[in-house]
Design a protein around this nucleic acid. Structure first.
Lengths: 173, 173
DNA sequence: GGCGTTTGATATAGTGGATAACAATTATCG
DNA sequence: CGATAATTGTTATCCACTATATCAAACGCC
């Protein structure tokens, strides 16, 4: 596996007609053989994931939300009264790394840390009004642009089957 | 999205019986609601990808090969006579980042850079005998341990369908 | 009341991905 | 042919994400 974002296809230039026309006469590169790479689930998994994330970023660009930030807002909305550790753990974020992430969201007034009265160590995380508004708009963008595009590519049934298999791998593998 | 490797579930400790037994009497955390996160393809995609890569690493651990390194060896085997740019591009690796990666493989005598006689700028990449041997063993480990486990989890038909959909996303999305 | 734990936080290191720039070499066009 | 542009491998950086150790404050418990 590997898979970056830009490369892969040959990040274009154009100042001049690339090279030859390559009818088939002279020796010409031609695409490489992927070999058993095409059968490696992990490889396609990674490349697909990059594509999906890239599209997500594009679709939600007006709101300046990364997938990770979106997932945090979603969780906060569905799980009021939780602290940083709980949210971070459910998302698979290490608590130290979650601090800076929250700083970012809080500085944009999308959420806030509230000292818990029961346990004065922990911060209860709450969505601000702005956070709720942004989340609502993000949800709409994701549904109508991002997921809709996937639906169009795969068809609803396939998309559902794909989701289920991925969830199964994430859960049981 | 988010998803690290360790966190997510609550990287265990044990010096003492965690806390309460939680029959159901007193207030207890309970798992958070994932909400529409469960419907986000990108989220499951990422988590599944991490799991698969993790398992890949485990399965190929005796050979000390990462997914990326394995993919390079595979490509070199199937595409003799190619240079760094061609291999890197096909794998979606940026050429600058490919240099250190090749240094690693070359220092382990798994492949070698050979100056091309036609174009003295480029390095033709070749697998060494040791590289071929390691690749062969890696292939076997991947097939009998890694992919076999996925097959067991999903079933052959589902696995094939999954692979096809992922490839389609990677290709056309 | 004291010991161990948990919580948020900091510092830090490692990895992967991305861009700019460079020397050597090659291609191309006038 | 000679100048200019392009390509190849490389270095140097930078940024994002991941990971570990450690800390002070607060809490739980015997």
């Amino acid at each position: 596996m590997t898979v970056s974002k830009t490369a892969g296809v040959d990040a274009g230039k154009l100042p001049r007609p690339p090279r030859k026309e390559n009818g088939e006469g002279a020796g010409e590169p031609a695409a490489l053989q992927m070999g058993e790479l095409s059968e490696l689930l992990g490889y396609s998994l990674k490349r697909a994931q990059l594509k999906v994330f890239e599209d997500f970023l594009n679709c939600v660009a007006p709101l300046q939300l990364t997938p990770a930030q979106f997932s945090v807002l979603l969780l906060l909305d569905r799980n009021p009264g939780r602290n940083q550790t709980e949210i971070a753990n459910t998302l698979g974020i290490l608590r130290p790394n979650f601090v800076a992430m929250l700083d970012g969201l809080e500085s944009r007034d999308l959420c806030a840390r509230v000292r818990s009265t029961n346990d004065r160590r922990s911060h209860i995380l709450v969505l601000t009004d702005k956070g709720r508004a942004v989340l609502a708009r993000a949800k709409r963008l994701v549904a109508t642009k991002h997921e809709a595009r996937l639906n169009e590519l795969l068809g609803p049934a396939n998309r559902a089957a794909l989701l289920e298999m991925l969830a199964k791998i994430a859960r049981e593998f």
